[in-house]
């Protein structure tokens, strides 16, 4: 059978890096991040967070093909390094989920005590 193996959608190959970065050759302050074995979950999350950053002029993402498990995120900034802006977005998201985690625990505890 020639069905693609399911784990290829979420497990990195032995020699595969999680991320590759390519500087845009024509546009200044722009670059393309290729995130392997990730999909809309991370792609859309990162794109929306990038757009909140005032240093970002453009941010977009796409999944080029449903059978190729990679996600492309394109960023153009107003002057900052795309890599730094990208890292900033990720750590902002991380702290948001950290906050959500703590708040959810507290809220569940409060709800269980009330009932």
């Amino acid at each position: 059978m020639n069905a693609p193996e399911r784990h290829k959608a979420y497990l990195l190959e032995d020699d595969e890096a999680r991320v590759e970065y390519a500087k845009d050759q024509k546009i200044p302050n722009a670059g393309l991040f290729t995130i392997y074995k990730e999909d809309h979950t991370i792609g859309n999350l990162v794109r929306m967070q990038l757009l909140r950053d005032s240093d970002v002029r453009f941010a977009g993402y796409k999944l080029p093909h449903p059978l190729e498990h990679r996600c492309l995120v394109k960023v153009q900034t107003t002057g900052a390094k795309p890599k730094e802006v990208f890292l900033r977005s990720i750590s902002d998201l991380h702290s948001e989920f950290d906050y959500l985690d703590r708040y959810f625990r507290e809220e569940v505890l409060r709800f269980k005590e009330a009932t």
Partner: peptide, 17 residues
């Protein structure tokens, strides 16, 4: 939430590298 945090951390380390 933990899984998402793990994913983001993984990505952060990879971009740092």
């Amino acid at each position: 939430i933990y899984e998402l945090k793990r994913k983001l951390l993984d990505l952060q380390l990879a971009v740092n590298d």
